[in-house]
């Protein structure tokens, strides 16, 4: 394993807060590893083994767990498009490569559609784990962008309540670390779907804007 969970956090340390988050992830991953080794004996999510295969990592009810994003309430078209991009190896950030490429390799298109519809139908709980002090700034950037710095408004594509639409993802209530990492990865040259404007959007964001946006979005329900 060449990629540690800490690398996806951008490799930069922003003071005590970030170190706290990293410590939290490390600790949770240990628990996850232990849980993963005994988990086959337990059945968290009903009888469907396809659903269970997802929820081992994506959390009970698909509510997300550490670095594995919440799937509950996500747009079904987005989930499907991401499964496709894992299968075609177009979404290429370290964890996608390490876990998702293999996880979806044997998934039939109809199964992908069923799983996407299933997770989309589960009510989503917000992660609420950002920095409350940055949320107001994040909200302003989300709604208005920063026109003088050529930062586009997120609201125009992701909607007034960050709910997403069609294959544009719901962002509201996703975990702070996941949102922050994804925004950083666009700028680090990782890819996702084809034809998305996100690499350009993310290029215009500095570290402070990314933290503010990720904080705000983690509280949106």
């Amino acid at each position: 394993m060449t990629v540690t969970p800490f690398q996806i956090c951008g490799g930069r340390k922003h003071g005590a807060r970030q170190r706290g988050i990293m410590k939290g992830i490390g600790w949770k991953l240990v628990v996850l590893a232990i849980a993963g080794s005994i988990a086959p004996a337990l059945a968290w999510d009903g009888g469907d083994s396809r659903v269970r295969n997802c929820t081992w990592c994506h959390g009970t009810g698909g509510q997300g767990y550490t670095v594995a994003p919440r799937l509950a309430g996500q747009r079904s078209q987005y989930i499907e498009s991401q499964i496709r991009s894992f299968r075609e190896h177009t979404r290429d950030n370290p964890f996608s490569k390490q876990y998702m490429w293999g996880a979806v390799a044997a998934l039939a298109p109809q199964d992908a559609r069923d799983l996407a519809a299933y997770f989309a139908s589960i009510p989503a709980k917000p992660a609420d784990d950002g920095d409350r002090g940055l949320a107001a700034r994040g909200r302003t950037i989300y709604l208005e962008g920063i026109p003088e710095a050529n930062v586009a408004s997120c609201y125009a594509c992701h909607g007034p309540n960050a709910e997403g639409v069609r294959d544009i993802p719901r962002l509201g209530g996703l975990a702070y670390v996941y949102l922050k990492t994804r925004l950083e990865q666009w700028g680090q040259g990782y890819h996702s779907g084809v034809g998305t404007p996100m690499p350009i959007v993310a290029r215009s964001l500095g570290p402070a804007e990314v933290e503010a946006l990720a904080s705000y979005l983690s509280f949106v329900r």
């Binding site: 050529n150 586009a152 125009a156 594509c157 007034p160 639409v165 544009i168 404007p197």
Partner: peptide
């Protein structure tokens, strides 16, 4: 830089884009 900013929402060739709102 400004053109790139416009095209973020209005499409890379200015062809328009379907976001939450149609651009």
């Amino acid at each position: 830089a400004k053109l790139e900013y416009c095209k973020t929402c209005h499409g890379l060739s200015g062809q328009g884009y379907r976001g939450y709102f149609p651009m």
